[in-house]
Design a protein around this nucleic acid. Sequence first.
DNA 1: CTCATATGTGAGAACGTTCTCGTTATGCAC
DNA 2: GTGCATAACGAGAACGTTCTCACATATGAG
Lengths: 368, 368
Amino acid sequence: MRGNFPGAPKSKATIADVARTAGVSTATAGRVLGGYGYTSEKKREQVLKAAQDLGYRPNSLARSLITGKTRTLGVVAGDIQNPFYASVLRGISNVAEANGFGLLITNSDETQLKEVHSVELLAQKQVDGLIVTPSDTRKARHLHNLRTVGVPLVLIDRAVAGLMVDRVATDNIAAAEHAVRQLIAAGHRRIAIVAELVDEGSGGLDTFLARAVAGDPIETDTLYPSWQRLLGYIRAHRIEGLPVDQRLILQAGSYSALAAQAVVPRLMIASDPPTALFTTDGTMSEGAMRALTELKLSIPQDLSIICFDDLDWMSFHRPGITTVAQPRLAMGEAAARMLLERIRGEDYPPRTVLMPAELIERGSVARL
Amino acid sequence: MRGNFPGAPKSKATIADVARTAGVSTATAGRVLGGYGYTSEKKREQVLKAAQDLGYRPNSLARSLITGKTRTLGVVAGDIQNPFYASVLRGISNVAEANGFGLLITNSDETQLKEVHSVELLAQKQVDGLIVTPSDTRKARHLHNLRTVGVPLVLIDRAVAGLMVDRVATDNIAAAEHAVRQLIAAGHRRIAIVAELVDEGSGGLDTFLARAVAGDPIETDTLYPSWQRLLGYIRAHRIEGLPVDQRLILQAGSYSALAAQAVVPRLMIASDPPTALFTTDGTMSEGAMRALTELKLSIPQDLSIICFDDLDWMSFHRPGITTVAQPRLAMGEAAARMLLERIRGEDYPPRTVLMPAELIERGSVARL
DNA sequence: CTCATATGTGAGAACGTTCTCGTTATGCAC
DNA sequence: GTGCATAACGAGAACGTTCTCACATATGAG
């Protein structure tokens, strides 16, 4: 019953076993099986036959140990379950698979501790390259160390101060600016924004606002995406000559739909409520929608909304939700491609790919 | 600038390097670094110091080659991007991480060819165990082979005929039966069902229906989930003494929201349209919702609906969508735990864990 | 025929660990 | 002291590949 049809692996056959039954040396067996060096047609067939009979399956561990390459990429994502990461991962997976690479995936839950663990694990497993969405844009000793060891690294979605490596992200500032300007063009004057805006010693919302509103130069690259999108929001106001009302900036404080949901109601019961809402990512969007549903507010009659990140439900929600669509799949693919280039040894200076986002207009913004 | 602070890996330090600078043999260095065998406190500190200075990082490849264990699980999922798989993967990831295991993830896109490739890749990388959602419940030579080689295997969501291995799935029949009976209890008599029902030589819908309606015994384990859920639908009708109208069974024919979307409209323009709709999974639900939105049908006034699989938007959709929630995360966790037990060598007979689904009642079904 | 080049083959080292085994140190009872 | 277990350590094999090298044979040019 077990393994008695041809081609079925009996147990574990090594190259030495194959060589023995084929009557050749392990060297020649290795050559035909590994596809390197010269081999005569005759021995080739003998070896192939023997391998087939024994159900030989190469052990990539041994191969990798000697070649120094594992044909495996490591990815540390925030949370596979999150649609953003799920899509990015799919993009990475697509090009990895097309190039015969495996994918070692971990979650950081946006925490530095787990990220460090993950990177360590992946490094020990000798991945050929790493794709990371860094949880901290300032201190990242573990990522710097990676560079000195020579493991190629590509960042997604966020940058790290002082870490000059390939990076792919959405052009958050431009995308947010464009979306908010659309709201303004539709006649909205009081536009709220709900963003996580976690504050990692970056000086706090007040100072940031002061500088942004004044138009002071800001180092934008190492900003977290939600801050970048807030910046776009502010710039839109500046350009259109509108004041920024800090009471309209809802700081969720953490990357969870619940936090977003909790922060919205307080806004709508204010004396001078907004006529439009801008959310800065999928998670915030979900939280905001939950809150609006609870408040029984109608879109866009009671409140217009533009979201960030195009989630499945936005297209069949009634009304359709106007949103800024990030090319998530393409971002993953681009990151993986860049990483593979580095692994192949190509030696450009570090590249930053800012991908354009697309504003998909549906029915969630009213003209005033 | 590069690696000149303590603890930073200079390049690649091996155990031999550490041993040399610590003035001990590679054997003792290995003992303290690997945490096996006896070591004196004095040499322990010497070695640890040396390892720290050199930035030593163990090479798990070499370790795995000799121990025969990689501490890595392989997963072949249908599509990481799909919320069902994304959650299951997160569950697997949780227990893998808690046990110090890595995760090698691939997509099969529900196709046998890619599944075979994936399994081959993962086997070559010497994963300690495999979790698979098999794309074909009948022929699966590659999975049988796996068993003869001795790689532990756990199936999720679907079984394979004749393959006696651990398995975790939702109790689809009971869940669907319960949901449909709820609809009937609410007064619905004409209930449509939209399911993928891909037909892998299983005799087709007609024969299946004939047997199911007659109450003939059916081998349910190796049925695809959508067929199981259809069976639950039929049983609910039988129990409640209602006839099954084949025209109300919408066969999408493939696992995509588009296919589901395409198949719904034809139903609603029929002479005797249903008053309720039951969808058999998240993807079908999405497609159906898209179609209903296009048709401008109001839920639950024009049509009641119960979905399968609790997607994010169902809770904040207006009205809330009543749905059968599968414990996706828990399924992944259970599968991973079972796999780890097998890897540890525990030798039960093959177990099948059927997890109960929960009917979450929201506002999408009207009482007639 | 001779030399050069290309093709084919095998023995054995190498990759970086863990494991086996033999040897030496240490401690303790008598 | 002796005896004897146990602790501590090192030399070298092993894991399953690829790589290096030396060598054998074939092919072609002159």
